[in-house]
């Protein structure tokens, strides 16, 4: 894959919540186009914060973040979440309960005004995630695995540069987890989107990602060998 302009570039980013120390302490990261990254770490060390910073849900203290070459975050720059072209799948998926599966997936399309191709796009994603029969169903009637796929399809619908996955598979059972992970990887390839997965499960990180990082003390260390996964 060509790496002319990285999909995501973080330079020396620092970030901390008001009442605690630095969650991100000068963190740097490059993610190439279509590349899949996994970030490993214990719970509570700020993996989710990292994703929220990339998504634009939090403001950084210093450093710079570029998305597809555009500066979106710096000390005095903050491009808000809706302007970043970043998709995100939350831990508990946050599928809108008042909308059908179809409407959920189309949500990001409608708000970006692509009305003409909307139907085609949603259909395509329903196919990619094997959700064809569920288009008109209400989220309350879906299983966890189905909700997971709706959330992924919804996040990918507006063709984001990067898809952020926050422990997105961890609440599913093992068999289902594998199947859905493969589905997501397939879809990411079709959509040519880069992705960042945070997880506490080394095996999952290994199977999902091209490159795996450990997060510790607010910075990232790339894991090169198989042993390093086990720390």
């Amino acid at each position: 894959m060509t790496k002319n302009i990285p999909s995501l570039e973080m330079k020396n980013v620092t970030f901390g919540y008001r009442n605690s120390g630095l969650t991100l302490a000068g963190m740097s990261l490059d993610v190439g186009e279509g590349e899949r990254i996994a970030i490993l770490g214990e719970s509570g060390i700020g993996k989710s914060s990292l994703l929220r910073v990339i998504a634009g849900l939090e403001r950084i203290t210093s450093g710079q973040i570029f998305i597809h070459g555009r500066l979106v975050s710096a000390e005095n720059v903050h491009c808000s979440a809706e302007e970043r072209k970043v998709g995100m799948v939350f831990q508990d998926w946050a599928v809108f309960p008042h909308l059908s599966v179809f409407e959920n997936i189309a949500f990001g399309l409608r708000s970006r005004g692509k009305q003409n191709e909307e139907r085609e796009r949603v259909k395509q994603l329903l196919e990619e995630f094997e959700l064809e029969g569920l288009a008109s169903r209400s989220p309350d009637t879906l299983s966890g695995g189905q909700l997971q796929r709706v959330a992924c399809a919804r996040a990918l619908a507006p063709r984001p540069e990067i898809l952020l996955l926050d422990e997105a598979f961890s609440s599913l059972d093992v068999g289902l987890r594998k199947r859905i992970r493969e589905q997501v990887i397939k879809a990411l390839k079709i959509e040519r989107a880069a992705s960042v997965l945070v997880t506490h499960d080394p095996a999952e990180a290994l199977e999902f990602a091209d490159r795996v990082f450990h997060m510790r003390d607010g910075i990232l260390l790339e894991a090169k060998t198989h042993n390093e996964f086990r720390q």
Binding site: A81, E82, R84, G87, M88, F90, A94, G108, A155
Partner: peptide, 15 residues
Amino acid sequence: VYDEQARLLGCTSWG
């Protein structure tokens, strides 16, 4: 998280 998800999908605060 619903608000945040909607923003990530391109909604302004009014949206």
